[in-house]
């Protein structure tokens, strides 16, 4: 039982990273109907910003985190302005492929910075762990969960209460009508990308605090948030969070139980378990758990 709860807690910790990334995908999807394959590079670069601020410039962790999120947001806006804005109105498939191109280019630049040694950001709590009844949780994971919760609550309040949030929701609903109401749709696109970039940078910073830090192969993590948004449904903020946490938990549980229960699946099956989960969910519910069914018209 303790093993199970421990796996659950670890899974929720890793799931928080996926949830942050999934939120970014959903932000961009809701505003522009595009799935951004550039999130992996935004996550890596966000983590590297945090590394540079905390290790090279020796700023405190939390200031570094905020600065990294801001830089990530600016980077997201730059990507949107340079690569996405000229393509407004083109098929979404084309835009999605462009984000793949953006990802490749940005990742090469990031790899130049990473080099051969992994870049690790130190979390202020160090390696201390909090134990409750045999289940232990590191301060770093705790911090990650708290930050994720704050970000989710903040985003939801932003969308419910603020004028800009309302404008973004209007843009997501119908761009032309939003335009007719005097909303600057282009600015809303930029804002969506900025939020997504900031979220990716926060996720990247926490990925960098883990033992492995940021290596040239770390970007794969960000792609695991894709099953999360598919499971949750592309349009749903709640779905993204739940999907992200679900993916994290399934991954952690698989890592603990699969070697004993189903050894024929091979070593490290946990790494691809999110994709297997996605196939299972999609066969039952083609639009995810919380997604809207498309109404079709000829």
């Amino acid at each position: 039982m303790t093993d199970f709860v421990q796996a659950l807690v670890n899974g929720l910790g890793q799931g928080s990273v996926y949830a942050l990334l999934a939120l970014g995908y959903v932000m961009i999807y809701k505003a522009t109907k595009v799935i951004s394959f550039a999130q992996p590079s935004l996550m890596i670069i966000g983590g590297l910003f945090a590394y540079h601020f905390t290790r090279v410039w020796e700023l405190p962790f939390w200031i570094g985190l905020v600065l990294a999120a801001l830089c990530g947001a600016v980077l997201g806006m730059v990507v949107e302005r340079l690569a996405m804005r000229p393509m407004v109105g083109k098929p979404v498939f084309t835009l999605a492929i462009i984000t793949i191109g953006v990802d490749i280019v940005l990742r090469i630049i990031a790899n130049r910075y990473i080099g051969v040694q992994s870049k690790i950001v130190e979390y202020p709590g160090g390696s201390e762990r909090l134990s409750v009844g045999g289940v232990s949780i590191s301060h770093q994971t705790l911090g990650l969960m708290v930050v994720t919760a704050l970000v989710v609550v903040g985003l939801l309040t932003f969308f419910r209460k603020s004028r800009t949030g309302l404008a973004m929701r209007a843009t997501a609903l119908d761009q032309e009508t939003a335009l007719a109401q005097g909303i600057k749709v282009g600015t809303m696109f930029a804002l969506a990308w900025a939020i997504a970039g900031g979220l990716a940078a926060i996720a990247g910073t926490f990925v960098a605090t883990q033992a492995a830090g940021i290596e040239q192969t770390t970007w794969i993590i960000a792609l695991k948030a894709l099953p999360a948004i598919i499971i949750g449904g592309l349009e749903s903020i709640n779905g993204a969070v739940i999907g992200g946490l679900a993916v994290g938990v399934v991954e952690a549980l698989t890592a603990v139980y699969q070697p004993d229960v189903a050894p024929w699946l091979g070593a490290n099956f946990a790494l691809v378990a999110p994709y297997a989960l996605m196939f299972a969910v999609l066969l039952v519910r083609p639009y995810g758990l919380f997604g809207q069914k498309e109404v079709e018209r000829v």
Partner: peptide, 24 residues
């Protein structure tokens, strides 16, 4: 059952599952 970018992500999942199978 799927279309557009949903399909793109599912086929992306296929690559990762395939990669795992080929490795193992």
């Amino acid at each position: 059952r799927l279309r557009g970018l949903y399909l793109a992500i599912v086929t992306l999942g296929l690559v990762f599952l395939g990669d795992h199978i080929f490795r193992e």
